[in-house]
């Protein structure tokens, strides 16, 4: 009697989605605190790996957390506002050699973007050369 084109999938309630996130965050804090001080692995990064593994081993389905995830990713630029305003506390540093630092940071940003992107492009080109097939990315 299963009708494949069900009009609406039963959606996981937002409270359950928050619960899943909360548990993952809590566990990742515990794991993150196990790393030594000179080799920090922050909790959100641990959490990303945990959630990725849970999805890969099909313990959690994407639908079960998708709504909250899309919401959080959608407001990410806003979530960065406090980090930006945090620079108010660094105005003293800026007074000393601020222009140099900002120029250097802009250069660094461009350098990181371009060098990683070009190395990746080269390696994928190399792979296609060696294995002799050209597969289109879709």
């Amino acid at each position: 009697m299963e009708n494949k084109s069900k009009p609406k999938k039963s959606e996981t309630s937002i409270i359950v989605q928050m619960g899943i996130f909360a548990v993952i965050l809590f566990v990742s804090y515990l794991i993150s605190s196990l790393f030594p001080k000179n080799f920090p692995v922050p909790a959100p990064v641990v959490g990303l790996i945990i959630l990725y593994l849970l999805l890969t081993f099909k313990i959690i389905k994407p639908e079960q957390i998708e709504k909250l995830s899309n919401f959080l990713i959608g407001i990410l630029a806003f979530l960065f506002v406090p980090s930006g305003i945090q620079l108010a506390a660094s105005l003293d540093i800026m007074k000393q050699s601020g222009v140099q630092l900002v120029i250097m940071i802009i250069i660094s940003t461009v350098v990181m973007l371009v060098s990683v992107a070009l190395v990746a492009t080269f390696l994928i080109w190399l792979r296609n050369k060696i294995f002799g097939k050209k597969d289109e990315l879709k």
């Binding site: 990303l48 957390i65 959080l72 407001i75 990410l76 806003f78 960065f80």
Partner: peptide
């Protein structure tokens, strides 16, 4: 900072949320 920290905290679950596009 007291208010900013509350908003900032949501960056943690937001970072984790990127597991979905990755997956």
């Amino acid at each position: 900072k007291p208010g900013g920290d509350i908003i900032f905290w949501f960056l943690y679950p937001a970072t984790i949320a990127f597991a979905i596009p990755l997956f």
